[in-house]
Design a protein around this nucleic acid. Structure first.
Lengths: 341, 341
DNA sequence: CTGAAAGCGCTTACAG
DNA sequence: CTGAAAGCGCTTACAG
């Protein structure tokens, strides 16, 4: 079965002995065209299964109604939730979405960004690769089309940025621990100063300060790769201390879960001896036992918001540089890992 | 900052006092063009930041090098892993990917399929919505462009289908339980006869038959929505039986995890009293304790394979109907939930 | 080795 | 109310 080509305006017009222009106008409900003609044209179009070639249309108008999305890794639940939000909001507004992964590779990221602009996307949504140094190239693209950053952002790129209230979220998490009566609160964070890690750490510090709790360097642990395994490893260090912490705030759920596993091994009671709080509200946080207290990040909303701002900029371009940062509110979900009875 | 328009061939040609054709050919390394000219052109192109408008190019050649992907829900780990594979393989071969969700809605699915063809995608990869009745519309599209189905497939659509060896995988899982000495093996499956559930159930039956273990209707439980909650609920039914099963095979990890939670509540020893096996190898399966024995489905490979077959059909269209089913091998990952000491 | 011209499918200002 | 023509940016068969 060989593939049929799509019906074109030309074919319709020939069939009807009308001009292409008239057919086009009839299909687009142009007021100039008589009702009779319109009906005739539409009927045949339906019959011949005509679908407009959006490519040709977009090509002409310089608008593709396609948005590009670049993320480090699509198969992280949080990321795919954001993308879900992006797709839904975009479709609602008549846009389609092309998705690409940078795999946290700076070069790949730029490459994707470039091919996307080549494809004529109307705008780009992007979450930056871990070590994005080469901001120059991003700026070049930003000269041509609107870009909105989300989740992993950078102040070096002057554009709209959609993030969660990292600092405040961390503050709330740590405050919650303090309210439980915890005084020696450890943090497990990233070594490298990613935007997220930095902000969350700042929130941790602010909470301690505000409640006059001394900041102890020994309780501040960092790791390159904030994984479950490293969470476990760092928790082991904490456990082996002469004076153990009475709470652990891990800046990701995975690290928190690693910590819980380590605590289990030493039969340390959670939360009585050591409470644990994570960050993300991943599915895992309800599977682990005790269930993990964590910060819920509304990925869907982040995605939708980013799309809204991007389309705004596409539709009504301004001459001003958009550098606003939009903060999406998170909420702390308290579960057994910090529920004192 | 107003957005610059992209540099075009025309601009380059004017600048160089060459014809558009020559510039085009120079950029594409056409053998006719002198080296000198080529270098001159390429240098200016770089200088003026020229990027070819792939839209125009694709428009002309009737090839967009865009693949459409439609899945029920992108934010399931298994799905996003498949998509990761799709994106990577597609990019490797110079294709870009547009992704859409059907949300398991038949109508939405068709709608997406249609707008995708309108966008001129070269082919479509799709995992069907749960209750896909309206196969007619899909067939219409199949008349125009190649479609490859994956994961959720249907024999009613004559095209290449990429799936895992569902039946064999289930057989292996149940055989494993039998080898542990289990004799009363319950199954938790879907009520509705989805392709996956049906095949897995068939594998369960074949294993029992092959080892001369009687099939007991009471041990065959079904649910509409195969979720954690329902896994728990059905496990409770099994637990309340006079003669309990000694193993549970749940056709999804979530249901298996629900079952484990139920067993925990009744302090039933896993796997000694009741062993549990799931299906998917989701992250959760290592978070729950005891860690869950489960079937690993190589999502990445499914995605890559589907892309390969699709591009094959795009590049060399045949007049034959492609109805082959490609089975991707899974493997059983044995963990504590079925590890007898 | 280079150029003028046609054409991909569509929209739209201009004429009538 | 309808049509002929130009143009979006590119490639390529045809001429020279």
């Amino acid at each position: 079965m060989s593939k049929k080509r799509n019906t074109t305006l030309k074919e319709l017009s020939k069939e009807l002995s009308l001009s292409i222009s008239t057919v086009s106008r009839a299909l687009n409900d142009h007021p100039d065209i008589s009702l009779e003609t319109k009906e005739k044209v539409k009927k045949l179009a339906k019959q011949m299964n005509y679908v407009p070639n959006l490519f040709a249309r977009g090509f002409r108008s310089r608008e593709t109604h396609i948005l590009g999305v670049i993320v480090p890794n699509i198969s992280h639940l949080f990321t795919s939730t954001i993308i879900k939000g992006i797709i839904e909001e975009a479709e609602l507004r008549g846009y389609r979405v092309i998705i690409s992964e940078s795999n946290n590779d700076d070069t790949k990221q730029i490459e994707m960004l470039n091919t996307m602009t080549q494809f004529g996307v109307d705008g780009v949504l992007m979450s930056l690769a871990r070590k994005t140094k080469d901001v120059e190239e991003v700026l070049k693209v930003l000269n041509r089309i609107p870009i909105v950053l989300f989740d992993k952002v950078s102040s070096k790129i002057p554009c709209t940025q959609v993030v969660i209230n990292e600092e405040e979220a961390a503050f709330n998490a740590v405050e919650h621990l303090i309210e439980l009566g915890k005084k020696r609160i450890a943090i497990i964070k990233e070594t490298e100063n990613s935007y997220n890690s930095e902000k969350r750490f700042a929130g941790y510090l602010r909470a301690l300060n505000q409640y006059d709790i001394p900041v102890r360097d020994k309780l501040i642990l960092s790791t390159e790769d904030i994984s479950l395994g490293n969470g476990r490893r760092l928790a082991n260090i904490l456990i082996s201390m002469k004076k153990r912490p009475d709470a652990i705030f891990a800046i990701t759920d995975n690290a928190a879960i690693g910590a819980i596993k380590a605590l289990h091994k030493f039969k340390i009671k959670i939360p009585d001896e050591i409470a644990v709080v994570g960050f993300s509200n991943s599915i895992n946080s309800t599977i682990i036992s005790p269930a993990l207290t964590t910060v819920d990040q509304p990925g869907d909303k982040i995605g939708r918001t980013a799309v809204r701002f991007l389309i705004e900029e596409i539709v009504s371009p301004t001459n001003e540089v958009n550098t606003k940062t939009v903060e999406i509110k998170t909420s702390l979900i308290v579960r057994d890992s910090s529920l004192m009875v």
